[in-house]
Amino acid sequence: MSVATRDMAVHSPRSGNQALLIAGPTASGKSALALALAEQVGGVVINTDSMQVYRDLRIITARPTADEEARVSHRLYGHVDAAVNFSAGSWVSDAAAALSEACAENRLPIFVGGSGLYFKALTRGLSAVPPIPADIRDGVRARLEQNGVEALHAELRKRDPESAERLKPRDRTRIARALEVVEATGRSLTDWHRDGLPPLLPPGEFTALFLAPEREALYARIDARFEAMLAASALQEVIALAARRLDPLLPAMKAHGVPALIRHLNGELTLQQAAEIGRADTRHYAKRQFTWFRHQLPEFEWVAPEAAREWLSAVIPRASA
């Protein structure tokens, strides 16, 4: 993030607005709640989900529909191509602009999503890792494909022992990331994390809730939603994505359901098997979301979805108007 962007993030005019943060596990009803509230109070819905930024993946990431996006202002949905390795730092830069615009228009910024890292960057700040040149990133990934993850982990152990010790030896994505950072900057990720950027929303400038549905009901919703996605042409969406032959390490290629459906397209799985893997992966992700928010962002108030509107009316006066 540039110095100019960082300054805008810290000094954006608040115009008396208190931002609202709506987090929760996948399929918990976050988007519907944000839409209803934005219609009621004249708010702006700002995407805080790392997969819903990709324009190639509207259906399988459960992005708001075109009709829903037309009802109120939505920002940062589907604005990134799947070939881009979009990072939390890139999202923070875009979110700073969206937040500044909402405040200048005196509209309530409603950040909604399930990506804990994005919410943490929003409220706690972010490490100051500079952009990685494409040739270095491509070189590291070429070595990963040619030599395997074990060789890259051994290389990382020599160049950044602290990161190598912290990472699992077969964590392809994080090992590649740590190695490209040290190769591009001469400094370890740990060093960069010590020199962080300030939060866009410091304490006192936001209200935050975490939708916490009952687990079994949530898992049933996840399963039903995945079937609905397939009925709504999610497979065709993945066919188009697979035809681009993108790097499998790109974030968009790892969206829940995408890897299994690509394996189905390659003849490795039946559609039924791929769907079950997609459903299971999504359920496991939801479980991790509960754990991550509980430990990493305890300032979020946990609220049952059916009680969320009443809770919001108590903390945001406009929500009860």
Rank of each mutant, 00 (worst) to 15 (best):
S2V: 12
V3F: 14
T5K: 11
M8D: 07
A9Q: 12
R14P: 00
S15Y: 07
G16R: 10
G16S: 11
G16D: 10
N17L: 12
A19L: 05
L20A: 00
L21P: 02
L21D: 06
A27G: 10
A32G: 11
L33W: 12
A36K: 13
L37N: 15
Q40M: 10
Q40L: 03
V41L: 02
V41Y: 03
V41A: 05
V44S: 00
V44F: 00
V45M: 02
V45A: 15
T48W: 02
S50I: 14
Q52C: 07
E68K: 04
E69D: 04
A70K: 06
S73H: 12
L76G: 02
G78E: 02
A83R: 00
F86H: 04
S87P: 04
S87Q: 05
G89H: 12
S90Y: 07
W91L: 13
A95Y: 04
A95V: 08
A98S: 08
A98F: 01
S100A: 15
A104M: 08
A104L: 15
G113V: 06
G113Y: 02
G113R: 01
G116Q: 09
Y118M: 10
Y118F: 09
F119Q: 06
R124P: 07
L126V: 00
L126W: 08
A134Y: 01
D138S: 11
D138P: 12
G139K: 03
V140S: 07
R141Y: 04
A142K: 15
A142M: 11
E145G: 14
E145W: 08
E145M: 07
E145D: 11
V149K: 05
K158A: 04
R159E: 03
S163G: 06
P169C: 03
P169G: 05
R170K: 09
R174V: 09
V181S: 09
A184I: 01
T190K: 11
R194T: 12
R194H: 09
D195P: 14
P199I: 10
L200G: 05
L201S: 01
E205S: 10
F210E: 15
L218G: 03
L218T: 01
Y219G: 00
R221S: 13
R221P: 00
D223I: 03
R225C: 11
R225L: 09
F226N: 06
E227H: 10
E227N: 14
A228I: 04
M229P: 13
S233R: 01
V238N: 09
L241Q: 07
A243Y: 00
R244C: 10
R245Q: 13
R245G: 14
L246Y: 07
L246N: 03
D247Q: 00
P248Y: 04
L250N: 01
P251A: 04
P251L: 12
H256F: 00
P259I: 11
P259G: 10
P259M: 11
A260G: 13
H264I: 08
L265I: 03
L265H: 01
N266H: 09
E268K: 01
L269S: 12
T270Q: 07
Q272S: 15
Q272P: 10
D281E: 14
H284A: 13
K287M: 14
W292R: 15
R294W: 08
L297S: 14
F300K: 12
A304S: 00
A308K: 06
V315D: 03
I316C: 02
I316M: 03
S320W: 07
A321W: 05
